[in-house]
Design a binder for these strands. Structure first.
Lengths: 224, 224
DNA sequence: TGACATTAGTCACGATTGGCTACTAATTCG
DNA sequence: CGAATTAGTAGCCAATCGTGACTAATGTCA
């Protein structure tokens, strides 16, 4: 974790790493070395001449093996004052980690289901909420669900991921028909037998060119 | 415009105000007091204890009459180094100004159509592009089109605003049917006669409660 | 004053989409 | 072998959506 510099740093980079654990979204927290809170989002101050993206990547790497398959800036947060660093503002990043990625070793980092996150500093709490909100709302424009799955997955797993993100049950046949029409996945020649029942074919995310959807606008999903 | 402080400021707030002018999106630029570029996005350094939102609002007010009907943070930008301030990072905001709002007086501020924006500092150019991209991509989740129109508008004007944002022609009957189903507007008892042709009824944006769309997912608008 | 141009607004047909039930397929368990 | 279980598909029917053609109300101009 970062060394506390004598001068107040200009800003911090805070990273929200998300994955799916047992049918819930979970966030990676690091044990805080000091301060009232015992756990915190991984964060650091950018180094000299380091871009924000690079700093976010570095922070990811320090907590978990391998890069997140997807990473995006959430925004700058400065209105809730308290933060582990004493910086005025923090720039939040969200990253997605595929299920099945080896868990962080040692007790320094751990996954917490979103329903059971310990108290964070007010600003980090805002960042976490914004990250989850962003991931959920960007689902149909970014391949978010695919980035929460390993490279190969069954269609049932994919559907369950969508159901998790949407908090809504989907119908199997409809889901697969839509998937077919969208040319997003391609079958591999591998199958997985998961205990009882017929084995499932494994697919990989392989979006193909397609004519850019003719359909009109959906005016029905304006939130308020 | 901001006073140049002796110490390098921690960050700047840069505002992208957009409106529609003659069938094009246009951005408000301020004449730069110094530096190579002649025009720049309105920006300033936040004051002591001023939230980012408040600073953005203050900057808006300094350039144009009345608040933007909609304002949202775009993110933090720090990777393109050059910026009018010497700050490490800039936090971008996008705001929408209804058509028909009185133009800024004097030569200090002016609207530039997006197709004809003068050279900006690299970082401000990124902020502008991100703002436009954000407005265009958030259209179906935020009432963006309505915030670019005055409080009362005809359905043809609304459709043209959608066409402008989508860069795509829409069919009148389909558009109105979708609008009907979404319970987004309500008719007023005023009409407007625009030269020749039948007068059009004026509507106002008045979203109503509705059951949260049962439909499944659109897997067909993943961008790539 | 009446024909015409112009813009607003609606209707209804046909094609497509999407939800759903019911089916078949392939495996494990006993 | 048969029951249970999970994967995957077929096809019906209702809802949605693109579209062209229609009616309505105004201004223009001979």
């Amino acid at each position: 974790m970062p060394d506390r510099r004598p001068r107040r740093p200009p800003y911090s980079i805070d990273v929200v790493l998300l994955t799916a654990v047992r049918g819930q979204l979970a966030v990676l927290l690091s044990r805080a070395s000091d301060g009232r809170e015992k756990w915190a989002l991984p964060w650091d101050v950018p180094r000299k001449n380091e871009t924000m993206d690079a700093a976010a990547t570095r922070i990811c790497k320090s907590t978990i093996e391998g890069d997140p398959g997807w990473k995006e800036q959430i925004g700058a947060f400065g209105d809730a004052k308290r933060h582990p660093s004493e910086s005025n503002i923090s720039v939040g990043f969200a990253g997605l980690i595929p299920t099945g990625t080896p868990s962080p070793v040692g007790g320094e980092h751990a996954w917490f289901p979103l329903s059971d996150v310990p108290a964070l500093s007010p600003r980090q709490r805002l960042i976490l909420d914004a990250a989850v909100e962003m991931v959920r709302s960007r689902m149909d424009q970014s391949p978010v669900a695919f980035r929460l799955l390993p490279q190969m997955f069954t269609l049932t797993e994919l559907q369950q991921m969508y159901e998790l993100l949407l908090s809504k049950r989907l119908h199997k046949a409809s889901f697969r028909r839509a998937l077919q029409g969208a040319w997003l996945v391609e079958p591999t020649d591998e199958w997985r037998s998961e205990g009882r029942g017929r084995p499932a074919q494994l697919y990989r995310y392989a979006p193909r060119k397609r004519r850019p959807a003719q359909r009109g606008i959906r005016l029905d999903l304006l939130s308020s």
